[in-house]
Structure formats: C-alpha cells, structure tokens
Measured scan of single mutants.
Amino acid sequence: QTIHNGDQTYHYDNPEEAIKVAQKLAKIYNLTVTVKGNTVQVH
C-alpha cells in the first residue's frame, strides 16, 4: 500500500494501516483521501 501526500510517499505492508494514516493526515491538514487500488492519495 502506498500513500502519496503531496511530494511525500509512504509505503505500508498493511492496507488498513495505510488508510488510517492517510485519514489522520487528511484531518490534520484538512485534505481529501482518495483510494485507488493499492495507492492512497492525500491531497
């Protein structure tokens, strides 16, 4: 599972963990989380 947060990319073995982290980032920075296959984008 990969999270793209602007210019930063994070890799997680656990998809659920990746989505949790993405949602935390989204709340902190007031962003949107988009899940596309194995990629979670925060923008």
Rank of each mutant, 00 (worst) to 15 (best):
N38Q: 04
A18P: 01
T2V: 11
A22V: 02
T2P: 10
T34I: 08
N38C: 15
N30Q: 07
Q41F: 15
N5I: 14
T32Q: 09
I3E: 10
T9F: 15
D7A: 13
T2M: 13
Y12F: 15
K24P: 00
Q1L: 12
D13V: 07
Q8G: 07
K36Q: 11
K27H: 08
L25T: 00
A18D: 00
T34D: 03
V33T: 03
E16G: 06
L25I: 05
V42I: 11
D13H: 07
L25R: 00
G6T: 10
Q1H: 12
T39E: 05
P15D: 06
Y10M: 04
K20F: 12
A18F: 03
H4V: 09
V42C: 09
A22P: 00
E16Y: 09
I19T: 07
G6F: 13
T9H: 06
A18C: 11
H11W: 12
K27I: 09
V21N: 07
A26V: 09
I28L: 13
N30Y: 11
L31T: 05
P15M: 09
Q41K: 10
Y12A: 03
H43Q: 05
K20D: 05
T39Q: 06
V33P: 00
L25A: 01
T32L: 11
H4G: 09
T9L: 14
A22D: 00
E16H: 07
Y10N: 01
N38P: 02
T34N: 03
T2R: 08
Y12C: 15
T32F: 10
D13T: 10
H11F: 13
N38W: 04
G37V: 02
L25P: 01
I3S: 11
E16K: 07
V40P: 00
Y29H: 08
G6E: 09
A18N: 00
T32V: 13
H11E: 08
H4E: 09
N30G: 15
Q41D: 02
A26Q: 11
A26S: 12
N38Y: 03
Y12G: 01
K20L: 12
Q1E: 10
K36D: 10
P15E: 13
T39P: 01
H11T: 14
L25F: 05
G6S: 10
L31Q: 03
Q1V: 12
D7L: 14
T34F: 07
V35L: 04
I28S: 04
N5W: 14
Y12M: 05
N30E: 04
D13I: 07
V35M: 02
I28R: 09
Y29M: 05
T9Q: 06
H11P: 02
D7Q: 11
Y29S: 06
K20G: 03
E17A: 09
V35S: 02
Q41H: 11
K20Y: 12
Q41E: 07
N14T: 15
I28D: 08
G6R: 13
V21F: 14
V35R: 03
I28T: 05
E17T: 14
E16P: 02
I19Q: 13
I19P: 00
K36N: 12
V40H: 01
V42H: 01
I3L: 12
H4D: 08
V21H: 09
N5R: 13
Q23A: 12
Q23N: 08
K20I: 08
K20Q: 08
Q8L: 13
I3R: 08
T2Q: 11
V33K: 00
G6C: 15
E16A: 10
A26T: 08
Q8M: 14
V21S: 06
L31W: 10
V42F: 03
Q41A: 05
N30W: 14
Y10Q: 02
G6M: 11
T32W: 10
T9G: 03
D7M: 15
Y12S: 02
N30V: 03
A18I: 02
K24E: 09
N5Y: 13
P15G: 04
N5A: 11
H4M: 10
L31K: 04
V40R: 00
D7Y: 15
L31S: 03
Q8Y: 14
A22E: 00
G6I: 10
H43S: 06
I28A: 04
H11M: 09
H43L: 07
N30M: 07
N14V: 03
A26L: 07
T39R: 04
Y29I: 05
T32P: 05
L25H: 00
G6L: 12
D13Q: 11
K24V: 13
V33R: 00
D13M: 09
T32H: 11
P15L: 07
K36T: 11
T9C: 15
D7R: 13
T39W: 07
H11R: 09
K20T: 06
G37S: 02
